[in-house]
Write a protein that binds this DNA or RNA. Structure first.
Lengths: 226, 226
DNA sequence: CGGTTGTTTCGGCCGCACCCGAAGCGTTGG
DNA sequence: CCAACGCTTCGGGTGCGGCCGAAACAACCG
């Protein structure tokens, strides 16, 4: 029969422990060097190099040479979304991790999803925008209302979408921990950028976790509540 | 590091050719016997049995004994959605299938996605419902308006949600061929049921393809346009 | 230019897991 | 009740693919 697109290739790529570790490390949105990814995956550099070659040929990662380093990153938002979907399924079906530990709670609170925020905090932001009429959720795409643009601009978020990219401004992204939607797309990326730049949130070193500063928590509670 | 849920296990399960074939066959929403699935996957019954055991233990499929047969089905909508997401990624990244053939076009027009319609026709239905104010797309969940319930009831769709299930009535499901949302959830399932029962559409024998009858095309063009 | 570091390519080892043949259960039917 | 059928379990063969050591490339650095 063999109907529809061929799932096997991509699923098999993600299904290897070393490659999965690489992809999950890259879900932080940072571009990492081949050597760093090798450590992350617990394999030697030459093994990681082979994996990265496969991932890049399949269009999951994008290599970028810079000096004698070679940086790899998640190729695009669609790859990131699919990985999140898989995370959701794994979280739902997978046997609960033996010890969920504090790290898990941190991730559920706030983390980076490729290039925008995810987790409880991100859902809070999304909810407020939608409920205040700042984000107009249409049949398919969402649009930012005039009021919404003003609201975000006040906070210092750059709502001007770069005209070069064909990427949608707003996009609902499914959150694996909250099982709800949060804001992705160019706007989601802009909001994360603003939070980091303003010192309202800081990224953990080698993790997807995002820690909100006291100032950031204040902004969040003041502007994104109700 | 090992952050977040463990993707590897589930991705590796889907990444095997035989198991992927089994899952894709089950995406028709029908429950199939182990023997049928063995043929579908091109392996012997004992091999398929082993695969089905793994899939069921991981929570991807649900076995149901009936007489001397044993029927397997996709476990729940979440599994189906993740498989669709993978299909989307594979369609986008995967090398184009050598010959896309007429079968592919048929699938893109209308197919079954676990228990509801997908493809161009499904997107048409979803668009009309949303644009007519029948489907109120809120921040997160969608709700069916009073007008919408009346509209669908007129068409013979059962809009009364079975109280036993905790399943949401309406749910946006990402369509891999249209790259847009279509209607899933209990309501999506009810609509498909009605279309089949009224003779407006017929399912292909061993495929996900759905063929609309002339009467069904008329209904679709009359009720779901504009 | 050697030396160092980061990355890739090549070859070969090894183990996992996919696969089937044979045999063991449970169900149906004559 | 025995035969037929469908499915599963068990055991062994085998091939693919991940892994590393060694070596070749490439880029910065003294």
């Amino acid at each position: 029969m063999r109907e529809g697109p061929d799932i096997t290739r991509i699923a098999a790529l993600i299904g290897d422990p070393a490659r999965a570790a690489i992809l999950q490390a890259l879900m932080s949105g940072k571009a990492l060097t081949a050597g760093e990814l090798a450590i992350e995956a617990g394999v030697t550099p030459q093994t990681a190099s082979g994996h990265l070659r496969m991932l890049s040929e399949a269009g999951l990662t994008a290599p970028r040479a810079q000096g004698r380093h070679r940086y790899y990153a998640i190729r695009d938002a669609e790859v990131a979304e699919t990985l999140e979907a898989l995370s959701g399924l794994a979280a739902a079906k997978g046997h609960l991790r033996t010890r969920t530990g504090p790290r898990d709670a941190e991730l559920r609170a706030a983390r980076v999803c490729y290039d925008h925020l995810a987790g409880a905090r991100a859902v809070q932001i999304y909810d407020h925008l939608a409920r205040s009429g700042y984000l107009l959720v249409d049949s398919d795409a969402m649009t930012l209302s005039v009021d919404g643009a003003a609201f975000l601009t006040d906070l210092g978020v750059d709502t001007a979408r770069p005209p070069t990219s064909r990427r949608p401004l707003c996009r609902a992204c499914l959150d694996w921990s909250e099982r709800r939607s949060h804001l992705g797309g160019a706007l989601g990326a802009a909001i994360l950028t603003r939070f980091l730049e303003a010192g309202w949130a800081r990224r953990a070193e080698a993790s997807r976790h995002v820690r909100f500063t006291p100032a950031g928590t204040r902004v969040l509670d003041a502007a994104f509540t109700g």
